[in-house]
Design a protein around this nucleic acid. Structure first.
Length: 412
DNA sequence: TCTGGGGTCCTTCATCGA
DNA sequence: TCTGTCGATGAAGGACCC
């Protein structure tokens, strides 16, 4: 569910000629909510909000009926409930969404191998190579929409254009359950009346900066000297937005984008100031991150810790290691040192996170035993834990400090 | 009103070696 | 020997995306 402004319908008559438009952007409509409604057909046509229960949840998805009350994704659940008290609230079932997402991506791959998923509910497709077999892009888009609806009982919207960025705007423009073509020679006509906030890379802050320059629409942006934009927004962002304003976007559809970082973070149900509890959470997160590193065959060199205070100010600290690692114990030890050096021991903390950057393949990663380190150590122990987890579930083997006491025993 | 979790990318500043 | 410059790299923070 996009948080961006809805792309308004442009004036004039667009649509039609798709000959220079090999890029498709497919976006599921209210994805999580639509998947839930398959199980709850009685709720179709009513306001439904998908969001984590608990005092600190946010909206993950909402039906269009709920959106009419102003509900949108990332909104605090407390506020969403106030705006739309009669909405049915359903806690998310991520496993089910992943399953549907995999199925939908499979449909895309029967059309072309050039599929770039950008989230569980959207993807870019380059259909240049599929034209002879399946027809023009708009026909391919219509076929995809039919198959997704028939095989998964959810709807999607498809934008067809000459570039990724315009295709994405086109799909937003025809939501929900639509198909829209922006002919290659009509890109500027389509873009210029739109508000700048619809552009990728223009969030709240950038919109405010642009407003100070008197820039409200993409057309205004196009007429602003690139030097002015660079001065206001930075070199790279300024040049990037100036290009987008004229529809220039030569990024290709790339099916395999390598991971750059892997991390995990957790917001406490209530703020915590006990360093023992914070370190226990750092261990849990390190275990999670390391398991995902190993699962993906990655090792990483830079470990970073994120700490969000009760007042929402956020601090991050990182350290680059001499050698890459995928071992939870090593991540945990660095994370604890970073936490200790942060000056926040004893401070009231709302969220902690652990992330590993500078990833490289674990196979090729150099590994030198530290002085006194045994050849069979944590790495092997954690691989054994991975095997146990695959057989018996993620919680089958845990570090002793993470084992919760059974109520009848009172101790771990 | 009170803000999740998983990411990417960019900017700025500091440090270090050539 | 000292100083300035430049590029690479690392660290930190922020904006933005879904």
């Amino acid at each position: 569910m996009s948080r961006k402004q809805q792309v308004p319908r442009p004036g004039g008559d667009l649509g039609g000629d798709d000959s220079g438009c090999p890029i498709l952007h497919v976006d599921m409509d209210a994805f999580f909510a639509s998947v839930e409604l398959r199980e709850r057909p009685d709720l179709v046509g009513t306001p439904v909000i998908i969001g984590a229960p608990g005092p600190r949840g946010v909206v993950l998805s909402a039906t269009y009926e709920a959106r009419r009350y102003g509900v949108h994704s990332a909104m605090p659940m407390t506020r969403a409930r106030r705006l739309c008290p009669r909405a049915t609230v359903i806690p998310p079932s991520h496993g089910r969404y992943s399953e549907v997402s995999r199925g939908v991506m499979e449909i895309f791959r029967t059309v072309t191998p050039e599929v770039e998923p950008i989230a569980s509910d959207e993807a870019f497709l380059d259909v240049s190579g599929a034209r002879r077999r399946l027809g023009p892009p708009a026909a391919i888009a219509a076929m995809i929409r039919e198959r997704v609806a028939a095989e998964h009982r959810i709807t999607c919207s498809v934008g067809v254009a000459s570039s990724k960025f315009v295709a994405k705007l086109a799909s937003q423009h025809c939501k929900p359950d639509g198909l829209f073509v922006v002919p290659a020679d009509r890109v500027v006509d389509f873009l210029h009346p739109l508000p700048v906030a619809v552009l990728w890379g223009v969030g709240e802050r950038t919109e405010r900066s642009l407003a100070r320059l008197g820039v409200a629409t993409v057309g205004d942006l196009a007429r602003t000297p690139v030097e002015t934009l660079q001065r206001e927004l930075g070199r790279s962002s300024g040049a990037h937005l100036a290009a987008l304003a004229w529809g220039r976007d030569d990024r290709r559809v790339t099916p395999h984008v390598p991971d750059k970082s892997i991390g995990a973070e957790e917001t406490f149900a209530a703020d915590v100031d006990d360093p023992v509890e914070i370190r226990r959470e750092l261990l849990r997160l390190s275990e999670r991150v390391a398991a995902r590193l190993r699962e993906g065959g990655h090792a990483g060199r830079t470990v970073s810790v994120k700490l969000r205070r009760a007042d929402f100010t956020t601090l991050s600290r990182s350290r680059t290691l001499a050698e890459p690692t995928d071992v939870a114990r090593e991540l945990y030890s660095v994370a604890c040192e970073l936490y200790a050096a942060s000056g926040l021991e004893g401070a009231l903390i709302r969220l902690v996170g652990v992330r590993v950057e500078n990833l490289l393949p674990a196979d090729g990663a150099p590994r030198q035993l530290a002085l006194g380190e045994r050849e069979t150590g944590w790495r092997e122990a954690e691989r054994a834990m991975d095997r146990a987890a695959r057989r018996f579930g993620r919680d089958a083997v845990l570090p002793a400090s993470l084992v919760r006491p059974r109520p009848e025993e009172g101790r771990p």
